[in-house]
Nucleic acid binder design. Structure first.
Lengths: 196, 196
DNA sequence: ACCTGGATGTCAGCCGCTGTCATCACTAGA
DNA sequence: TCTAGTGATGACAGCGGCTGACATCCAGGT
């Protein structure tokens, strides 16, 4: 006999996603999610600091992958090249098989402002972490923050595109194109500035 | 005889900032803020959709200024040049006199994760709005989103720097430097990409 | 004098979230 | 084998954010 079914967090996440997708986020109470897997509301909040977190826990892996990509970039690479290298590692974390699951999850987020807020917050945290890593490589400020933020922006735009219905390309190739577009934009900007 | 003291939202905002600054955000209840200006909790929530909003209402003016800057940019300007032009308008909205007030407000935000989340959300909304404006000017995707997001990032970094203790430069000049740095970063990146 | 409308007050109630303490299987050590 | 933990969970009370519904109150127009 087992004391409790193992993997409580995972089971809660799964049940939460299903309930959110059908009834909607606000129409689902934390107690209902817990009850769906035979637990109590109190236990739900022991695993997730708040109701929204149940959709976002696990993103530390993404950050870790990003950091590994930064760490394994060639020593002499420029900040944006380091970021581009990291983005290549990141795309490996989203194989095409995961697209349908990601789509479902994203549709839930897109329907609720509070969830969008949390999602954005996570991306910001990611950018901050990447900026730290760049600074460790010797990149100064504001270059480190700019490069990190740009990388996360490219990732965000590409991820959304990757999820779009009818999109066939891999995340990696989309990221490549968006990144190129960013460089092109900068190339077309007036270089000499005269702001006072 | 007046029915009610006018300017309820403004009075609530002022009281809220003071209370948050002294007791802290979480240690201050909405009812306390309302009571401080002779109103009830219910009325507080009639003026602000949630407790955090009391610190952020008024940002529509920033967005409006940003949009005007986009609209008044020369017709042939490249996306990033349009954004640079808009940023010049924006800096006019933060004269040095406002620095101490902004610092107080920011210190409250910096001490509370939920407020940081909301702040970031507002910046994202701003970026989305700017991207819309760029698209209206004929800029395509993902260029519009990239340029808008970059502009907001430059603003964010510059704003934080502007608030730092000991910083003497105007927001406009800081923005100019950060923007230059962004262009320099892109210039140093490898242009030919080979992502598959 | 009457009516209308907008800002406010009052009250009840749900839900997110937390502190506290008990429970209950299982485990390591005597 | 007994026993003292140990860690995840349950039970319960309670606060504060937030909302819906309804009453009130007072200016301004008719």
């Amino acid at each position: 006999m087992v004391r409790w079914q193992p993997g409580a967090p995972e089971r809660l996440q799964k049940a939460a996603l299903e309930l959110f997708a059908t009834r909607g986020f606000e129409q689902t109470t934390a107690a209902e999610i817990a009850q769906a897997v035979g637990l109590t509301e109190r236990t739900f909040f022991r695993h997730f600091s708040d109701k929204r977190e149940v959709l976002f826990q696990g993103q530390e892996l993404l950050a870790q992958t990003f950091l590994e990509g930064v760490a394994t970039a060639p020593p002499g690479a420029s900040p944006l090249d380091v970021v581009a290298h990291a983005l290549r590692s990141v795309s490996a974390f989203f194989p095409d098989e995961r697209r349908s699951h990601s789509r479902l999850r994203q549709s839930v987020i897109d329907r609720n402002p509070a969830l969008q807020e949390r999602e954005r917050h996570k991306l910001t945290t990611l950018a901050t972490t990447v900026a730290d890593a760049l600074r460790t490589r010797g990149v100064g400020e504001p270059a480190a923050t700019l490069a990190a933020e740009s990388g996360v922006t490219v990732f965000g735009i590409s991820f959304i595109q990757w999820l779009r219905e009818g999109e066939e390309r891999s995340l990696a190739s989309i990221i490549g194109e968006v990144f190129d577009e960013l460089l092109k934009l900068a190339g077309n900007a007036t270089v000499g500035r005269e702001v006072r």
